[in-house]
C-alpha cells in the first residue's frame, strides 16, 4: 500500500517535471514572466543569475505555501505568496551582489519585480501547492528549469546578435544589431521562440490533440 503511494507520487512528480519544463512550460504556453524575459534577458550571464534566483524563490514560496493547508482563503494565500517570495529574494539578492558585481546593477530592479511575475504561475499551480510540500517542491523545480531554458535561449540569442559575445567573451561572429538588446527585440525573440516551440510540439503531438490555449 505504502509502496503504491510512493510510486504514484513519483509518477506525479515525473509528470510535473515534464509539464513544467516541456509540455506546459508556463513561460511559453501562458506567457508568464514576460517582463524579466524582455527586459533582463539580454546576456547569458544575467539569464543564469536570474534563473538561479527564480528557482530558489519558487521553491521557497511553493514549499512555504504548501504548509498553509487547504482551509485558508485563496486571497490570503496569495498575500502570503507575495511576502514569502520577497523574503526569499533578500538572501538571493545579497548572494547575487557578492558573486556577480557586473550583473547586480542590471538585476537590482528586476529581481524584486520578477518575484511578482513568478508568483503569477501559482495562479494555476495552487492545485499542486495544495498536494503537499514534496509535490510543491517538484513543481517549483520544474517551473524553475522551464524558466531557465526559455530565458537562457532568449538571452544567448540576443547577446550574440547585439554584442557578438557569449558570457561576455568575444566570439568571431555576431554583434550585428545593437537594438537586439532593447525591450522590443525581446518581444520578437520570445515570439519566434514560442512559434518554434509550437512547431516542434506539433511534430510530436497526435493530430487533434494539440496543447493550444
Amino acid at each position: 500500500m505504502r509502496r503504491e503511494k510512493i510510486v504514484s507520487k513519483l509518477r506525479l512528480a515525473l509528470k510535473l517535471l515534464n509539464d513544467g519544463i516541456w509540455r506546459h512550460n508556463a513561460f511559453v504556453v501562458h506567457a508568464v514572466g514576460v517582463f524579466p524575459l524582455v527586459a533582463s534577458g539580454v546576456t547569458l550571464k544575467n539569464a543564469v543569475m536570474l534563473s538561479a534566483v527564480t528557482a530558489f524563490v519558487l521553491v521557497v514560496t511553493a514549499v512555504g505555501v504548501s504548509f498553509l493547508g487547504k482551509g485558508i482563503a485563496r486571497s490570503i494565500k496569495w498575500a502570503v505568496c507575495a511576502v514569502l517570495s520577497a523574503a526569499a529574494q533578500v538572501p538571493a539578492m545579497l548572494l547575487a551582489d557578492r558573486f556577480s558585481d557586473s550583473t547586480y546593477t542590471a538585476l537590482e530592479f528586476t529581481l524584486i519585480l520578477l518575484c511578482v511575475n513568478t508568483l503569477l504561475y501559482f495562479r494555476r499551480d495552487m492545485v499542486e501547492v495544495n498536494k503537499g510540500p514534496f509535490i510543491a517542491f517538484v513543481s517549483a523545480i520544474a517551473n524553475g528549469i522551464g524558466f531557465a531554458v526559455v530565458i537562457c535561449i532568449v538571452s544567448l540569442f540576443r547577446e550574440i546578435v547585439a554584442f557578438g559575445t557569449v558570457w561576455n567573451y568575444k566570439i568571431p561572429f555576431g554583434g550585428w544589431h545593437h537594438p537586439a538588446a532593447l525591450p522590443f527585440a525581446g518581444f520578437f525573440t520570445l515570439a519566434f521562440l514560442i512559434a518554434a516551440y509550437k512547431g516542434v510540439l506539433g511534430l510530436f503531438s497526435k493530430p487533434g490533440k494539440g496543447d493550444e490555449k
Binding site: A31, A191, K198, G202, E212
Partner: peptide, 20 residues
Amino acid sequence: VPEVFKGLPVQLIYMGILSM
C-alpha cells in the same frame, strides 16, 4: 498568419512593433 504564429507569438510580435 502561419499556424505556429497564431495566438501568443503574433500577439508578442504586435507588442514588439508597438514597443518599437
